[in-house]
């Protein structure tokens, strides 16, 4: 049986993937961003939503993925394989860092994870022989016509969005997800019922990071150029966490709703107020904390949709 959340997700993916057929370029671009940020927010959801560890390391792993992808492509690796390399590297690096970082709890963990972003940026800008330092790296771009390129990257990002969505479904239906929910609510008690909390948290952190690496590498290939400041942005890290919370952290559809709302607002409304971008982000954070602690999803959107759907079924039967 298909759940309401899955039906909404499938409809939304259909809308996104068909944008090249009917919409202008900048809408297709927005669709790519929606898919990309949905993937990131869905990834964040595993550690931040289920386990309740608000990681701010997203940008570190996106950036690392970009660099691994870019450096390997510059050194002659094919695009597709460079994405695989980026994914694997981020998976390995994040598990190792997870072992260190997840000794910290609460705010300390959040601070520790945001430090990674700065640390990685410093490494990328100092290790010039490999990364090109502050000058950045040019990546061979696809020599197809622009609209084909856009459709291609749209499909890839949507594929990642679907993968991260399925990862969320898998985790939440599994003992891993149940264990993470226990950890979120009472970590000591979780330990006492036999959950290897350290292991569970490291797995969650690794799952949260790995596909961010893929997203980074794909983004690098799409944009054709990366540099340290663009790749490791604290703002990106905050945005992803805000998106997930805006939609509803710890739910499967919430991060998609949050990311989509945020990107649509940003790409279509805020582009006209660029100088205000950060201020708006700040205001949004405060608003979520005070007015929407459980996210848009808890406003009953799902319920309304479900009722409509049931009504339709009934009408059809008649």
């Amino acid at each position: 049986m298909l759940k309401t959340a899955n039906i909404i997700f499938i409809l939304w993916v259909t809308v996104l993937i068909t944008t090249p057929l009917y919409a202008e370029n900048y809408i297709v671009r927005a669709a790519i961003m929606v898919a990309m940020f949905s993937s990131l927010a869905l990834s964040w959801n595993i550690i931040g939503g289920y386990a309740g560890y608000p990681s701010l390391a997203t940008a570190a792993f996106v950036g690392l993925g970009s660099y691994v992808g870019a450096v390997s492509q510059v050194n002659g690796v094919t695009m597709l394989f460079s994405w695989v390399l980026a994914t694997i590297s981020v998976g390995v690096v994040s598990s190792l860092l997870g072992v260190l970082l997840l000794r910290l709890r609460g705010h300390y963990f959040a601070i520790g994870s945001i430090v990674l972003v700065e640390l990685f940026r410093l490494i990328a800008s100092s290790w010039s022989s490999v990364t090109g330092g502050g000058n950045g790296l040019n990546i061979p771009i696809l020599r197809w016509d622009p609209s084909t390129v856009a459709s291609f990257f749209l499909s890839v990002m949507i594929l990642l969005m679907i993968l991260t969505y399925m990862m969320n479904i898998f985790v939440s239906n599994n003992r891993l997800g149940f264990g993470l929910k226990c950890i979120k609510q009472n970590e000591d008690a979780a330990n006492m019922v036999g959950i290897n909390t350290t292991l569970y948290k490291v797995i969650a952190f690794m799952l949260s990071a790995t596909l961010c690496g893929t997203v980074g590498a794909v983004y690098a290939s799409w944009s054709g150029y990366i540099d340290p400041t663009e790749s490791f942005q604290i703002v990106l890290t905050l945005k992803v966490a805000v998106m997930a919370m805006l939609g509803g952290a710890g739910t499967i559809l919430g991060p998609v709703i949050g990311a989509s709302t945020f990107v649509v607002l940003e790409e279509i409304v805020w582009v006209n107020f660029l100088d205000w971008n950060r201020a708006i982000l700040g205001i949004l954070i405060v608003m979520i904390i005070f007015f929407l602690p459980n996210g848009i999803i808890k406003l009953g959107i799902l319920r309304i949709f479900k009722e409509k759907l049931n009504q339709k079924f009934k009408d059809n039967i008649k």
Partner: peptide
Amino acid sequence: AAGALFAQ
């Protein structure tokens, strides 16, 4: 259920 799931 958490007790059964993880300890057992």
